[in-house]
């Protein structure tokens, strides 16, 4: 029997969808599941964590955990992993998760793998699959250690709505605070905005939109769709979009139900961040644009003509 501990993905007090996705996959593998929630106020999430598919909920709650810091967070996860006798610790994708996972791995003397898209367990043999080189290749990796710490790529697993765990809350003592690296100030880049990595629809804008007016027009479309609003790196470099909106190899990795690329050529580094999306729509005036190679539906046309019409149709749906 494999024991899989999932690290709850909690942002601003809210449980993110990836937690249920990971727990569903863990149960489908026949594992015993537990979840660990770390933060200043996480106790109240216990029933949601059980509903997401965990049979034990480790709660590490302390005022000092209000602001994320890698060392105490890692210590809290290690504590839960030892308590549960975890064979595997899974993180959903986030930059903070990616920063903590390797530290947890060293402390548990576990193998570490980031950006995994699949895990197979065959007796004692554990294998994972992960993309590399901007999604150009997939690597099949054998785990040569008794334990594995993994960061799962966004959209790799699907939540099974049928699955539910049972509530069994175990409170753990908070870790010591780390005074060696401390946060002095925290400024939200995204207050009140739809979280790109958790949105059902993402609309992204590329260099085809040219300037601020073009960006605003595409942003309007995103707002009409209640979608997350992202961009290619070209728009970030041009100073038209903030870096936390960049989708791609060196930006966010998203896998929404629907991804709409507007005026984006589809460079390999951009595709690496979005080609796991379930349905991809693309608008580009160049029929040869590589984005059409991954699109389910492509419109070859001038985005300044197409976007207003799209908005009209969407207004009808909203009405």
């Amino acid at each position: 029997m494999t024991n899989i501990l999932v690290v709850a993905d909690i942002k601003q007090g809210e449980l993110k969808g990836s937690t249920a996705e990971l727990l569903s996959r863990a149960r489908a593998l026949g594992a015993d599941t537990a979840v660990v929630a770390v933060g200043a106020q996480v106790k109240d999430l216990a029933d949601q964590l059980a509903a997401a598919g965990s049979d034990t909920q480790y709660i590490v709650e302390d005022a000092s955990l209000e602001i994320f810091s890698a060392n105490p967070f890692a210590a809290a996860v290690v504590k839960a992993a030892n308590e549960f006798n975890a064979d595997m610790v899974w993180f959903g994708f986030s930059e903070t998760g990616k920063a903590v996972a390797p530290r947890v791995a060293v402390q548990l003397e576990a193998a570490c793998a980031t950006e995994i898209i699949d895990v197979t367990i065959d007796g004692d043999a554990v294998q994972i699959i992960r993309p590399a080189i901007a999604n150009k290749v997939l690597q099949k990796v054998k785990v040569n250690a008794p334990k594995l710490v993994a960061v799962v790529r966004a959209g790799a697993f699907e939540a099974d709505p049928e699955i539910a765990g049972k509530e069994n809350v175990v409170a753990l003592d908070p870790p010591e605070t780390d005074t060696r690296a401390k946060i002095k100030e925290l400024i939200s880049d995204a207050s009140g905005e739809i979280d790109l990595t958790d949105a059902d629809i993402v609309v992204s804008v590329g260099r085809g939109a040219r300037d601020q007016a073009g960006v605003d027009m595409v942003k309007d479309l995103a707002d009409d769709l209640a979608a997350g609003f992202g961009s290619s790196r070209a728009m970030v470099d041009a100073g038209l979009m903030a870096h936390n909106k960049q989708v791609g190899q060196t930006g966010k990795i998203v896998a929404p139900s629907l991804y709409i690329a507007v005026g984006i050529s589809g460079a390999i580094q951009h595709l690496a961040g979005m080609n796991g999306s379930k349905v991809i729509l693309a608008v580009n005036k160049d029929p040869e644009a590589p984005i059409f190679n991954v699109a389910d539906f492509g419109i070859v046309g001038d985005l300044f003509d197409v976007v207003p019409l799209l908005k009209e149709e969407i207004k009808k749906i909203r009405a």
Binding site: A110, A111, C112, A113, Q127, P131, A132, N135, K136, V137, L138, Q139, K140, V141, K142, V143, N144, A145, L271, N275, I280, P287, F292, N293, V294, A295, D296, F297, G298, I299, V300, G301, D302, D305, V306, L309
Partner: peptide, 25 residues
């Protein structure tokens, strides 16, 4: 090494989607 790459292969990423040209409406 606690991890070892066993195999490396190209994912099939190309989709045969529908790409339209013509009148925007």
């Amino acid at each position: 090494s606690p991890t070892k790459i066993m195999d490396v292969y190209s994912p099939v990423t190309e989709k045969k989607g529908r790409v339209l040209t013509g009148a925007v409406k």
